[in-house]
């Protein structure tokens, strides 16, 4: 992973700032950086999206290919994830250097999609046990400016929203042989419902507090972070601790479930001081992966629908803007 060299004094400055709910770039502890989302950027994919979150730059392409369903799930299609940490992001990723991080991120994506509600896999089935759609979700990491997981999950969701799979019909003749017929109309496609596709919210523990959407500098000050994947309804589909440090079970609850956490740590001074202030300055007690996740989903949904409503007349910016 791209890293920055920070001196001890710089780290202290960041940690003390976070304790006062002041971050180096002026954000509060639960504020995201400005997210740029653009869909349909690569025309030979079924769906694509580019997400820019601060300096983090992600391009996701989804390709639908026909294949055979898995044996244990004969009437469902499936998703395949691949993350390419390209040397564009940092020279350390040259050759096979990015493979470890790529596999880690891909496995996390498999895990957050590993439940029935995220994507309707049954709609990807063409004929049970014989043909189904395989969606290859390929993530390309172009620049790394902290908070990779969140940016990637946003980009994956946007790309899945943009995905159009051609409609096919299975024709069966008297002898029982099947034939697959592709629709003549290129606009005759099926769309995936991304209502329940989760987004990852990474909560980075810095000092006694946790922040969302940490920059590279902030990640360098943090020992551990908690990765929570939340759907737009606030359902948690996966949770993971990442980083080399350890987390107190109490702080995990605090990041997850505000009241519970607050109640457990009510005896600690700094916590109760915040509690007394109520919502004064984004009290820690109110901060939660779930809530941030819900807000994130709503704004992403709005942007995607707005972009879609512009239709084919939309000026494509891509990397030229």
């Amino acid at each position: 992973m791209a890293s920055v060299a920070l001196s001890e004094a710089e780290k202290v400055y960041i940690v003390h700032g976070v304790q006062e709910d002041l971050r180096v770039d002026g954000r509060g502890c639960e504020d995201y950086r400005c997210v740029d989302v653009e869909t349909d950027v690569v025309s030979n994919t079924s769906g694509s999206a580019r997400v820019k979150l601060g300096h983090t730059d992600i391009l996701v392409g989804v390709k639908a290919e026909m294949g055979t369903p898995k044996l244990e799930k004969p009437n469902e299609g499936y998703l395949e994830f691949f993350v390419d940490c390209s040397a564009n992001a940092t020279p350390e990723f040259e050759g096979r250097g990015g493979d470890d991080l790529g596999t880690e991120i891909a496995n996390t994506l498999y895990r957050i999609f590993n439940n029935e509600s995220s994507v309707d896999l049954k709609s990807l089935c063409i004929s049970p046990r014989e043909h189904c759609w395989i969606l290859y979700v390929d993530v390309l990491l172009l620049e790394c400016g902290g908070n990779l997981f969140d940016a990637i999950s946003i980009a994956v969701k946007a790309a899945l929203f943009n995905t159009r799979i051609p409609r096919v019909r299975v024709l069966e003749d008297e002898e029982g042989s099947k034939d697959i017929e592709l629709s003549d109309d290129p606009y005759d496609c099926i769309r995936l419902s991304v209502e329940n596709v989760p987004c990852i919210v990474t909560l980075c523990k810095i000092g006694y507090r946790h922040v969302v959407d940490a920059t590279l500098q902030e990640e360098a000050c943090s020992l551990a972070s908690l990765l929570v994947s939340v759907t737009s309804k606030g359902v948690v589909t996966c949770m993971r601790k990442v980083g080399k440090g350890s987390l107190d079970p109490e702080s995990i609850f605090e990041m997850m479930e505000p009241r519970l956490g607050a109640w457990r740590t009510a005896g600690v001074n700094w916590m109760s001081a915040d509690q007394a202030e109520g919502g004064g300055r984004g009290a820690v007690g109110c901060e939660t992966g779930k809530r941030v996740g819900k807000v994130l989903h709503t704004s992403l949904q709005n942007i995607l629908h707005k972009e879609e409503s512009l239709g084919p007349k939309r000026q494509k910016v891509g990397f030229l803007g």
Binding site: V42, R96, L140
Partner: peptide
């Protein structure tokens, strides 16, 4: 001078298995 060429797995009509190497 050190160069690496890679092409995204989704860049071609048919999906590529590996971006480089």
């Amino acid at each position: 001078v050190n160069c690496q060429y890679s092409s995204a797995t989704f860049s071609t009509g048919e999906r590529k298995r590996r971006p480089h190497g």
